[in-house]
Write a protein that binds this DNA or RNA. Sequence first.
DNA 1: CATATATCTGAATGGTAGCTCAGATATTCA
DNA 2: TGAATATCTGAGCTACCATTCAGATATATG
Lengths: 113, 113
Amino acid sequence: MDPARVEAVRSRLPSPDDAEVLAQHFRLLADPVRLRMVYSLLEAGELCVGDLAAVVGSSESATSHQLRQLRLAGLVRTRKEGRTVHYRIADTHVRLLLDVAVEHYLHEHEDHG
Amino acid sequence: MDPARVEAVRSRLPSPDDAEVLAQHFRLLADPVRLRMVYSLLEAGELCVGDLAAVVGSSESATSHQLRQLRLAGLVRTRKEGRTVHYRIADTHVRLLLDVAVEHYLHEHEDHG
DNA sequence: CATATATCTGAATGGTAGCTCAGATATTCA
DNA sequence: TGAATATCTGAGCTACCATTCAGATATATG
């Protein structure tokens, strides 16, 4: 037990509020289906709900629910054209985050550290 | 509806298995308490369970449960010293991931396009 | 050996998250 | 206007997750 050290570390941590904000952003990427939706939009540039549902293999309702979350979080934006709604990525940083993760966690490489 | 485009996008997506792997990694960072634990370890270099619990303000049991997840995922490693167990970050990529996220989601900056 | 300390573990609990289903809204077309 | 299409929405269900609680394990100390 080292109370002084505990306090030192504690003082340098992100606040609970900041941690909550960060966690919420990571949470959006923490579901495989939602992750594939984001990838689909990055790949296609723009997709309507029906096509996106077909791409990821989910129902249109489930897809709409997920898109709502991404929309509320500001990760995607919409363009309405008649009856259809086209979704596109609005968050310019997601691509970088995903690239980093893919690079390090998918291309299984021996540990360099 | 554009079946050809759907198939084209679908073929370029990460597989459901790969998406699952990525999502699991993001999931570890999707909880504010766990996120602060990771930060604590990055900051301190090494911390025992009791001190870590004190830093993030959780019970020792809850902390132990969370550390188990991080350990199983290979994100942290342990060093045993008598009765105490010292945890440290093993995943050399988490820091980068967190830096990117903090840079883009915490330092609230107007959208650059 | 007995006690205290540090950590771990499993079961139970409360809250949350994603899906389905039914139905609502909006828009196009006849 | 009425029918069909595209999307959205809320309620209900199930599964999962983080915590607590009680107790187990392991190690140091007397």
